[in-house]
Amino acid sequence: MHTYFRYPTQQQGKIWLKRRQDIRPSDIAKQMRVSRPYVSKAQRVAEQRISKLLKNAAAINRISIEHSSSKFGFAVGYCPGYQSISYITYSPQFGVQVWFDHEGECSSCPENSDCERTIRGLAKEWKLEFPSDVSISRAASLLFDTIMRRLGWVE
Protein backbone atom coordinates (compact mmCIF):
# COMPACT_ATOMS: atom_id res chain seq x y z
CA MET A 1 0.00 0.00 0.00
CA HIS A 2 1.36 3.39 -0.94
CA THR A 3 0.82 6.15 1.54
CA TYR A 4 1.42 9.80 0.92
CA PHE A 5 3.42 11.41 3.68
CA ARG A 6 4.99 14.75 4.31
CA TYR A 7 7.22 16.25 6.92
CA PRO A 8 5.69 18.85 9.23
CA THR A 9 6.32 22.36 8.01
CA GLN A 10 8.93 24.44 9.79
CA GLN A 11 6.29 26.20 11.86
CA GLN A 12 4.41 22.98 12.61
CA GLY A 13 7.70 21.44 13.70
CA LYS A 14 8.42 24.33 16.04
CA ILE A 15 4.96 24.16 17.59
CA TRP A 16 5.17 20.38 17.96
CA LEU A 17 8.56 20.64 19.66
CA LYS A 18 7.36 23.30 22.07
CA ARG A 19 4.33 21.25 22.96
CA ARG A 20 6.57 18.23 23.54
CA GLN A 21 8.56 20.39 25.96
CA ASP A 22 5.29 21.03 27.82
CA ILE A 23 4.91 24.66 26.89
CA ARG A 24 1.26 25.63 27.08
CA PRO A 25 -0.55 26.26 23.77
CA SER A 26 -1.53 29.78 24.82
CA ASP A 27 2.13 30.60 25.55
CA ILE A 28 3.18 29.13 22.19
CA ALA A 29 0.54 31.26 20.47
CA LYS A 30 1.93 34.38 22.17
CA GLN A 31 5.53 33.50 21.41
CA MET A 32 4.88 32.75 17.77
CA ARG A 33 2.27 35.48 17.34
CA VAL A 34 -0.39 33.10 16.08
CA SER A 35 -3.85 32.25 17.35
CA ARG A 36 -4.52 29.64 19.96
CA PRO A 37 -6.66 27.45 17.60
CA TYR A 38 -3.86 27.63 15.04
CA VAL A 39 -1.47 26.11 17.57
CA SER A 40 -3.86 23.25 18.22
CA LYS A 41 -4.41 22.63 14.54
CA ALA A 42 -0.68 22.78 13.75
CA GLN A 43 0.03 20.38 16.59
CA ARG A 44 -2.61 17.96 15.29
CA VAL A 45 -1.35 18.08 11.69
CA ALA A 46 2.25 17.67 12.84
CA GLU A 47 1.39 14.61 14.90
CA GLN A 48 -0.51 13.07 11.97
CA ARG A 49 2.46 13.60 9.69
CA ILE A 50 4.98 12.34 12.24
CA SER A 51 2.87 9.23 12.81
CA LYS A 52 2.98 8.47 9.09
CA LEU A 53 6.70 9.18 8.94
CA LEU A 54 7.41 6.76 11.79
CA LYS A 55 5.24 4.07 10.20
CA ASN A 56 6.88 4.60 6.85
CA ALA A 57 10.39 4.34 8.31
CA ALA A 58 9.34 1.15 10.10
CA ALA A 59 7.94 -0.33 6.89
CA ILE A 60 11.06 0.48 4.91
CA ASN A 61 13.26 -1.19 7.52
CA ARG A 62 10.90 -4.16 8.11
CA ILE A 63 10.43 -3.14 11.72
CA SER A 64 7.32 -4.28 13.57
CA ILE A 65 6.43 -1.45 15.93
CA GLU A 66 5.69 -2.26 19.56
CA HIS A 67 5.29 1.27 20.89
CA SER A 68 4.90 4.50 19.00
CA SER A 69 4.26 8.09 20.06
CA SER A 70 3.64 10.73 17.42
CA LYS A 71 3.42 13.27 20.23
CA PHE A 72 7.04 12.57 21.13
CA GLY A 73 8.29 11.46 17.70
CA PHE A 74 9.61 8.18 18.98
CA ALA A 75 8.89 4.51 18.23
CA VAL A 76 10.42 1.24 19.25
CA GLY A 77 10.04 -2.15 17.60
CA TYR A 78 11.77 -5.28 16.46
CA CYS A 79 13.59 -5.87 13.19
CA PRO A 80 13.57 -9.62 12.34
CA GLY A 81 16.02 -9.06 9.50
CA TYR A 82 18.74 -7.98 11.88
CA GLN A 83 17.23 -9.70 14.90
CA SER A 84 17.54 -6.46 16.74
CA ILE A 85 15.48 -4.04 18.80
CA SER A 86 15.12 -0.90 16.67
CA TYR A 87 14.33 2.70 17.50
CA ILE A 88 12.87 5.33 15.21
CA THR A 89 13.27 8.97 16.14
CA TYR A 90 11.82 12.09 14.61
CA SER A 91 13.18 15.54 15.23
CA PRO A 92 12.51 18.80 13.35
CA GLN A 93 16.26 19.26 13.15
CA PHE A 94 17.39 15.74 12.23
CA GLY A 95 14.33 14.30 10.53
CA VAL A 96 13.64 10.59 10.81
CA GLN A 97 16.45 8.33 12.01
CA VAL A 98 16.54 4.56 12.55
CA TRP A 99 18.77 3.01 15.22
CA PHE A 100 19.57 -0.66 15.79
CA ASP A 101 20.25 -2.16 19.19
CA HIS A 102 23.80 -3.45 18.96
CA GLU A 103 27.32 -2.35 19.78
CA GLY A 104 28.66 -0.20 16.98
CA GLU A 105 32.25 0.24 15.89
CA CYS A 106 32.14 3.96 16.56
CA SER A 107 35.91 4.50 16.60
CA SER A 108 36.35 3.31 13.01
CA CYS A 109 33.01 4.50 11.61
CA PRO A 110 33.02 7.53 9.28
CA GLU A 111 29.49 8.36 10.46
CA ASN A 112 30.69 8.84 14.04
CA SER A 113 30.68 12.65 14.06
CA ASP A 114 27.28 12.75 12.38
CA CYS A 115 25.88 10.30 14.97
CA GLU A 116 27.34 12.33 17.82
CA ARG A 117 25.80 15.52 16.47
CA THR A 118 22.43 13.79 16.14
CA ILE A 119 22.47 12.21 19.60
CA ARG A 120 23.57 15.44 21.22
CA GLY A 121 20.78 17.27 19.42
CA LEU A 122 18.15 14.71 20.42
CA ALA A 123 19.32 14.87 24.05
CA LYS A 124 19.02 18.63 23.94
CA GLU A 125 15.50 18.43 22.50
CA TRP A 126 14.53 16.06 25.29
CA LYS A 127 16.25 18.34 27.77
CA LEU A 128 18.55 15.55 28.89
CA GLU A 129 22.17 15.90 29.85
CA PHE A 130 24.50 14.16 27.40
CA PRO A 131 26.94 11.69 29.04
CA SER A 132 30.37 12.59 27.67
CA ASP A 133 32.45 9.67 28.98
CA VAL A 134 30.87 6.91 26.85
CA SER A 135 30.89 5.96 23.19
CA ILE A 136 28.25 7.41 20.90
CA SER A 137 26.39 4.12 20.48
CA ARG A 138 26.37 3.71 24.26
CA ALA A 139 25.12 7.26 24.71
CA ALA A 140 22.35 6.55 22.19
CA SER A 141 21.18 3.48 24.09
CA LEU A 142 21.19 5.42 27.36
CA LEU A 143 19.16 8.19 25.76
CA PHE A 144 16.56 5.85 24.26
CA ASP A 145 16.28 3.94 27.54
CA THR A 146 15.60 7.17 29.42
CA ILE A 147 13.01 8.23 26.84
CA MET A 148 11.21 4.90 27.05
CA ARG A 149 11.14 5.15 30.82
CA ARG A 150 9.68 8.65 30.57
CA LEU A 151 7.01 7.42 28.22
CA GLY A 152 6.25 4.54 30.56
CA TRP A 153 7.07 1.86 28.03
CA VAL A 154 9.54 0.20 30.39
CA GLU A 155 9.70 0.05 34.12
Binding site: S84, H102, V134, L142
Partner: peptide
Protein backbone atom coordinates in the same frame (compact mmCIF):
# COMPACT_ATOMS: atom_id res chain seq x y z
CA UNK B 1 20.47 9.91 31.87
CA UNK B 2 21.24 7.41 34.57
CA UNK B 3 23.75 4.83 33.45
CA UNK B 4 23.05 2.54 36.39
CA UNK B 5 19.37 2.34 35.40
CA UNK B 6 20.21 1.15 31.91
CA UNK B 7 19.99 -2.58 32.37
CA UNK B 8 18.17 -3.63 29.25
CA UNK B 9 19.91 -2.22 26.21
CA UNK B 10 23.54 -2.45 25.25
CA UNK B 11 24.30 0.09 22.50
CA UNK B 12 22.30 1.69 19.68
CA UNK B 13 23.78 2.30 16.29
CA UNK B 14 22.48 3.52 12.97
CA UNK B 15 24.47 0.91 11.04
CA UNK B 16 22.67 -2.46 11.05
CA UNK B 17 24.16 -5.09 13.37
Amino acid sequence: IKKEENNRTTDACRVPP
